[in-house]
Design a protein around this nucleic acid. Sequence first.
DNA 1: AGTATTTTGTAGCGCCCGCTCCAGAATCAT
DNA 2: ATGATTCTGGAGCGGGCGCTACAAAATACT
Lengths: 201, 201
Amino acid sequence: MARLKAFDEERAIDAAVDCFWARGYEATSVRDLGEAMGIGGASLYNAYGDKRELFIRALERYANRSMRERIERIEARHGPRQAIAAFLAEIIDRSVKDPECKGCMLVNSALDVAPHDAEIGERVGDYLGEIRAFFRRNLEAARRAGQVPRRLDATVVSGHLLGVLLGIRVLARTGAKRKLLESVARPTLDLLETAPRRGLQ
Amino acid sequence: MARLKAFDEERAIDAAVDCFWARGYEATSVRDLGEAMGIGGASLYNAYGDKRELFIRALERYANRSMRERIERIEARHGPRQAIAAFLAEIIDRSVKDPECKGCMLVNSALDVAPHDAEIGERVGDYLGEIRAFFRRNLEAARRAGQVPRRLDATVVSGHLLGVLLGIRVLARTGAKRKLLESVARPTLDLLETAPRRGLQ
DNA sequence: AGTATTTTGTAGCGCCCGCTCCAGAATCAT
DNA sequence: ATGATTCTGGAGCGGGCGCTACAAAATACT
């Protein structure tokens, strides 16, 4: 009954994610988006409303494809303690291998967009909360399984893990070397050793 | 031999710091800056060159007044182990008490400006390096003084402390509560306990 | 084929951006 | 006072911004 869209909406959203991820919200123009998504301005506004709504869609897409996918995949393949270690290891690995040093779109948004937009700020906060919940439930499971010290407080340590993750992401965006990123994570991972055996370092 | 400037350059720079700190580089317009600094556009360009140069001056000013001042003050008043704890405690305290949730200008810049401007990126990296150097030299001093476990590696742990600090700053900008920020720091501070006595939590 | 409906490219709206030009005001030395 | 020099406010430059109006193109129904 009407003309069909000439582009794949999901593919286009992925292109928008790449733009916003690399350059941030303000620095990405609607014309940049149109070019990367392979569509004209009119189609963009027709399909997504406006730039801000497109950004929200892109953020959601990023959360699904990058964060939630990773959480599900890792939880399916690893036990609770290993899941936490694998999560940090994968973040470091991807950070080091990204020549653009884009970091994490959620972290970038948290500093760039969220403070000036309450709704987006809330969404970003929720996404970060999901990451912390991942840490927390795996910490608790690991504790029950005796994989981590019994006196370890999952509330405290899940917050700590979230902070460490964000720190890694910030340093990654500054182009830090693998060695530094691993230094950030190392003492935290040691903390999860069942016994304070050989201890800290 | 000529007309005198009608404004205090340092006061004006402080106003510029406030603007860039709260809103970031892109989102701060030259007109915003002029208004906050109490000068017109022409004077701004006459005194500081252009917006980017003003930003670099503001960043330097922030580093001197906020970061270096804190490091010097804390190192003058505390022993090495306490200096590290005091540093983190002060960051958390200031973060919680800032109603604008501005976070740290260096961290904000690291994600916002640095990736797209090599020179500013290098400067930000240098500033972060100074913070890590603060952690490192106090860790080493604390180790010599027997205030921290002997097997603790200052290179690794200084990187870890930097990451934890950045994580706290990111969360602070998202408006996190004190309890969460303290959760991020707590396990790291426990790590510095001389003995793994009552241990982790 | 004809019609209704939606998408598409283009052209351009008003606005704010970083920045500059310029005439006048303010300060010095003479 | 006069002149040299610098600072200041305002007007405005070219340009890119987010966004929209509009007519042509493309589809699905009758």
